[in-house]
Design a binder for these strands. Structure first.
Lengths: 204, 204, 204, 204
DNA sequence: CATGAATGAGGCTTCATTCAT
DNA sequence: AATGAATGAAGCCTCATTCAT
């Protein structure tokens, strides 16, 4: 029986923050950060706009918390993959699978990231987005280059074009993916990988 | 070489609307429609904010004109391709190539479309976006299905997944493509098609 | 004598809307709806222009509320008169007296109504003004016709002309009437009725 | 053959001003001075807004010209009546008849005067409106007082109330009068006078 | 924790007016 | 006489944020 000795007024209720952040993320993802009013988030949460400021410093700090929580988790996953030092193809497969898992768990955050990260990264507060972007490119581009050198990926392709191809292919999925749909993240990852690696044309 | 010796003052400039629209499209694409202030567009055009209203009814009508001009041109191209009744693979190749050409010519409009069409399509004024979206899906999905039935595209893939894969793969390019860069639209189309059709893995 | 000992700070003030509406009505009446700026209303109320939007949707919705509140009360009074089924002369007297009472209680609203109702009635939102106008005409014109048929009103007059004569005569008073002046509404009504019914000429 | 020696470019066309003023008056009367845009007037006249400034200094100067032309004519008529030094009843009849003739000829100007004169009179440029208003009151109030003293008008009425009654009764007609309707100005004047002087009740 | 009421900056838009052509 | 394009002031409204209760 946790918190059994506290009165209602004393209880810290730290889950409330989490709920509110989830609500905010959902609305940001649906309408865009700029087009989302603080009042809309409050409505969705069943409180008044001003009351949000008891929990958060500002609208921007909500966005900040949403994005950094997502990126922290994403890098936990990616770092584990990279630390395993698999072959290029296996690394690629693991990164793609991990990415779809993140989309599954943080869909709103991913959608927000897609839409807003480019201009947010220019602000000092969100400099970590640019950092993340750089590490991201290193991980993927490096894997592709390693694969091309090792002869497992085609060497006739412009590697930057291939990088963008794979990256976009994976992340744009956040714009249509709905958790609990027909396909599990792993299933989607498998099909995407199959298309990316083998192509959609029938081989003669 | 017409007009080559005329000064700015001599030109009749009935194309002022067009210039302003191009400016607006550039700013919308760079910062998003909502985050773009009418004043920013006017600054970029060297006039005052209010002066834009001599040429356009509203900020929204600028957006409308930008998007519908783009879609009109896009469908001119697509319809020509579809009317040619090529085989599925050739149709896919032609559609992809045509798409990259449109990205080349209407990059800002394409970027705006990517970012805003989903929620705009809900407004009656932009209902044509939803229409276009439907026709678009028919054209691509139909081609993919035809190809799978004809044995030129793999039949083991979820066709809707493949559709999203190809669609996103092509259009997201607008977010990083810069006209006049290293690759022509046709060159990019060729490489993308090669990846989409054959995959990036080396075949044993 | 309720609330007689409470300070301003203690009052719950759920009637803030009402105060603001009264202020708005006063300014609309004095300068006309179009010529009244939202800032002027706010100044008069001691707040900033934007703050009005916490209480009201728009300038137009203030106007709407002012006019519909007035008409609701007016029809309460008129309906009571009409329901009494008095003779034509007594009905006319009661309608005139009731009208001057409404002018006394809703002078700003009446003045606004005079000035703006004609063009407002064209907008769907203010369609009730046209409805009211129709019922109004029925009530007065019917009474005049009944009286002419019954031989209590002169039958040699164009009844529509007489209707306009009586109607305008009464309502234009709102443009000069000031509550708390020399005459009570009932006193003014009595004199107006005397003029309307008997004329201003001395009878030989 | 007037103007037969002038080329098209040289002709002064002074009637154009008059046409434009008539157009402006019509629009001012229909929608109110403030709510009327200069562009609306120009549209109605088939030219562009800026072109009006070739003919007039400002929107306000159009209003000025419309109102002062009307008042000049009105006072020509009133002064003739007053100079005739008729008896009070005959003076009243002549003033009322003259007023309806002015409404017939200057309906838009009268409607504008009704709606705008009160606040315009506060501006120096329109001080003549206040002057006119004072002379107007003198003429009518004096006639009524003369009549009451002479025993031709009832002496039991508040004379200021009677003044407002007669004044409003006459001028408000401009808000519904349409030239070329069923009644001539003289006919309307006769009926109004009959109501004002004898009342609408049947005499026992 | 939350409300109710407000602030103040800034956004979109309108409009009378100007002026070179 | 009229056009086309612009100015600049002002108007309505939105919204993130604050704060006393």
């Amino acid at each position: 029986m946790p918190n059994s000795k506290k009165t209602a007024a004393e209880r810290p209720a730290p889950e409330r923050r989490g709920e509110l952040l989830a609500t905010a993320a959902e609305v940001f993802a649906a309408h865009g950060y700029n087009a989302t009013t603080v009042r809309r988030i409050a409505d969705e949460a069943g409180i008044l706009a001003g009351s949000l400021y008891y929990h958060f410093d500002s609208k921007e700090s909500m966005l900040d918390e949403i994005l950094s929580a997502f990126l922290d988790e994403l890098w936990d996953g990616y770092d584990a993959v990279l630390a395993a030092r698999l072959g290029p193809r296996e690394t690629l497969e693991a990164l793609v699978t991990e990415s779809f898992r993140e989309i599954d768990r943080h869909r709103p955050a991913v959608a927000i990231y897609q839409r807003e990260s480019r201009h947010l990264a220019l602000q000092p507060r969100f400099a970590y987005l640019a950092d993340s972007q750089r590490r991201f490119e290193q991980a993927w581009l490096g894997t592709l280059r390693r694969g091309a050198a090792a002869g497992v990926f085609r060497a006739d392709l412009d590697v930057r074009l291939a990088y963008r191809f794979v990256r976009d292919t994976v992340w744009v999925a956040a714009s249509w993916y709905r958790p609990g749909g027909a396909h599990s993240p792993e299933e989607i990852a498998r099909q995407y990988l199959s298309m990316v690696l083998e192509g959609i044309a029938v081989r003669e």
